[in-house]
């Protein structure tokens, strides 16, 4: 578990003080994929980089499993946290296998054990070791490099992985594929993942929890359903709805996507008409507010409950359909490195 307790980061730029992160408190549960999202300059990347001390907070406290990160040895801390960045950040002079095995090498693993581990992880991210292990990063496509980056972060089996816009530099189709892949990998390894993005579709598709930031402040933290149903401010509504891909959701109805009623245990919860589009359903859910149940029923024209849809799946579908926004995909993130 990671906790941020009233964390701030200020730095001097051209004689004035900039608050990159302003009094952020956040708990990131073990085994959760927690998305930090916000526009450029919102402080999401800086927030993440303070966890492995690539940035030092100017106020507040960050703990990992109860230990204050500032009290830990910085090298040891970083080796216990996987780190994935845009374009993978691969070392161009080392082979794919050597890249993947870098942290184990720093930790002093034997050569053959490193190799074995690298091959195992390449298999996990869908790059057959026989074909890829001995190639150099420049011989790989952007998407393949990104997979190697993920494999490298997992190599020493760290409980926590930080991902800084990991899929920001690949084309939309590859991106979607990598996102699905990450969900599959996460289901297999169950890490605590902090995932920075500015793509709301990506956030909905991947996030167990989403923390929305703006101007260094945490605007809302909650599940995807929370952000949809109980937007804390108009900014949340605008941000979750600004994507043009949203229109695609107007053409899909709940009846088409709900699980058959018999396949899930009966619970309480709202019932929505099956002819509503996913987009309309999202608005309707926001209007009705919290019910305390993990999903809602879908009815036919006669009012009979014919299907059930969990908020998790509902959010994932939104994520699928939203996709990377054309306007924001690949955009350089201004808050990556305060200059």
């Amino acid at each position: 578990m990671i906790t941020l307790d009233h964390v701030s980061k200020t730095f001097e730029s051209k004689g004035r003080t900039v608050r990159a992160v302003d009094d952020v408190s956040l708990t990131i549960g073990a085994g959760q994929l927690h998305v930090l999202i916000g526009p450029s300059g919102s402080g999401k990347t800086t927030t993440m980089r303070m966890i492995n001390r690539l940035e030092t907070p100017t106020a507040g406290r960050i703990t990992v499993d109860g230990r204050d990160v500032l009290a830990m040895d910085v090298v040891e801390l970083r080796r216990s946290i996987g780190y994935v960045i845009q374009q993978g950040g691969l070392l161009p002079h080392l082979t794919v296998a050597e890249n993947v095995a870098m942290v184990p090498r720093l930790l002093g693993w034997q050569r053959h054990r490193r190799r074995e581990r690298a091959e195992e992880l390449l298999g996990l991210v869908g790059l057959p070791a026989g074909q890829f292990a001995d190639r150099y990063p420049r011989e790989l496509s952007g998407g393949q490099q990104q997979r190697v980056g993920v494999a490298r972060a997992l190599a020493a089996d760290p409980p926590i992985v930080l991902m800084d816009e990991p899929f920001g530099a690949v084309d939309p189709i590859t991106r979607k594929q990598l996102q699905r892949e990450l969900r599959r990998v996460q289901a297999a390894v169950n890490k605590t993942i902090v995932f920075v993005t500015h793509d709301i579709g990506e956030a909905f598709l991947l996030g167990d929890q989403i923390a929305l930031m703006a101007d260094g402040r945490l605007v809302q933290n909650g599940t995807p359903a929370d952000l949809l149903r109980r937007p804390a401010t108009p900014f949340v509504t605008a941000f979750t709805g600004e994507d043009r891909g949203l229109r695609a959701l107007e053409y899909t109805t709940l009846a088409e996507v709900a699980d058959a009623a018999g396949s899930v245990p009966a619970t309480d919860g709202d019932t929505l008409p099956g002819e509503l589009s996913i987009l309309e359903a999202g608005r309707e859910l926001a209007r009705r507010g919290e019910t305390g149940v993990d999903g809602f029923w879908v009815s036919d024209r006669g009012g009979r409950k014919t299907g059930y849809l969990s908020y998790r799946r509902f959010a994932a579908m939104l994520g699928e359909a939203l996709g990377p926004a054309g306007a924001t995909a690949g955009e350089a993130d201004g808050d990556a490195l305060p200059a």
């Binding site: 690539l54 090298v75 040891e76 780190y83 960045i85 070392l91 870098m102 720093l106």
Partner: peptide
């Protein structure tokens, strides 16, 4: 800078960054 950032994030010491990343590159 991205390569160096990755090296730092992986937990390389200054000496390791020099020997394993900066000098070879």
């Amino acid at each position: 800078p991205l390569t160096l950032d990755a090296a730092r994030g992986m937990g390389m010491t200054g000496g390791q960054r020099l020997r394993l990343v900066e000098l070879p590159l």
